[in-house]
Design a protein around this nucleic acid. Structure first.
Lengths: 193, 193
DNA sequence: AAACAATTAAACAAAATGTTCATTTATTTA
DNA sequence: TAAATAAATGAACATTTTGTTTAATTGTTT
């Protein structure tokens, strides 16, 4: 029998279409056509259109997150882990035209204020990563003994704010500089020590 | 009474929407919304959706053509008129993201092979411009005594081929160089004189 | 040849869209 | 200030599109 279509390929292809046209203007036929199958067949892989969209976005967010995780894991110094985590997240998004364009079209993917976070599970992983670095830093005595849970939420909130402000224009250097200032402020504090 | 909506603004706004989504995925509601009116009202300005699209594209092509015409009119030397006509046409299209993107989405606007040219009237103006330069050049003795009608068609055909090949990637420098070579070949010939 | 897996393409209900037009709102005129 | 005129709204409607389902077909394995 024909090999079953690779679900990763489906998500990646769907991402390209949703990125270009957005959720509403993209049809199941658009995605199926891009995949070289009929729209009826697409329902063997996903439950419905919303399911396809949610899984597509989740897949892209997870891929982005995995790359950051790998970059962090390659560091041994915990301070550098923190810095790398911050900067790589922004850098990798800047490089991902499809995901970035999708975020532009659908800011609800990454809500700043709404309690409804459609990708809460994935974002919890990001917060968990922040938390693990903070815990390690405190254990090694190179971070101040702060409450890891609270600080993780704070860092993630600030990070989200920057992502939301930056993804409209990935090339805004002024904001990029401000991001560096913010990371510097968070890591070194304002007062001399 | 309220001032009637400026038809130029309608075409410019419609161009932005058609450029982003293409003819099929753009709805009358999209355009009307972008204009701050209801879709019902849009029918006071255009006959139907196809009419809106055709007039929108025509308007953009004419604007592009007018810019070239002005650039040519600013020259006095007929050889320079010819060169400026060639290069400015390409340059102005490269600068017009909306029109270029629309051409990418709808190559039928500028058919290479089809006898059906939906904008034949506008293209005839371009050919007429070429012809008037060739006639002037011959009259001044700086162009060889060629058949102006035939050569105008040839030049326009070559020009169209380059536009079609270049508008997919406005930044393709290799093709741009080839275009310069082609203009050079057309104007100076291959043989030493 | 039979069984199983993958896919197609038609069918269908629902939604969306292009278009029309009665009504409303805004502006001008007498 | 009322009437006339112009511009626009928004609901209605016919048509088209789309999301979804599924019987039939095609391809592969046993």
């Amino acid at each position: 029998m024909k090999p079953r279509e690779d679900i990763q390929n489906i998500y990646q292809t769907a991402l390209a279409v949703f990125s270009e046209y957005g959720f509403q203007k993209t049809t199941m036929e658009d995605v199926a056509g891009r995949l070289g199958m009929t729209k009826g067949n697409l329902y063997l892989y996903v439950k419905n259109k919303k399911d396809l969209y949610h899984k597509t976005v989740a897949h892209a967010l997870e891929a982005w997150q995995s790359r950051v995780l790998e970059a962090v894991a390659a560091q041994t110094d915990v301070k550098e882990k923190f810095r790398i985590m911050c900067f790589k997240a922004v850098e990798y998004l800047a490089q991902d035209n499809l995901l970035r364009n999708l975020l532009v079209r659908d800011p609800e993917i990454f809500p700043m204020f709404s309690d409804k976070d459609p990708f809460a599970d994935i974002n919890r992983n990001s917060i968990a990563l922040i938390r693990s670095i903070v815990v390690q830093g405190i254990a090694e005595g190179v971070f101040r003994p702060v409450d890891p849970d609270r600080i993780s939420d704070v860092v993630f909130m600030i990070y989200k704010m920057f992502i939301i402000r930056m993804y409209i224009r990935a090339e805004d250097n002024a904001l990029h500089d401000m991001f560096e200032d913010t990371v510097d402020l968070c890591t070194r504090g304002l007062f001399t020590q």
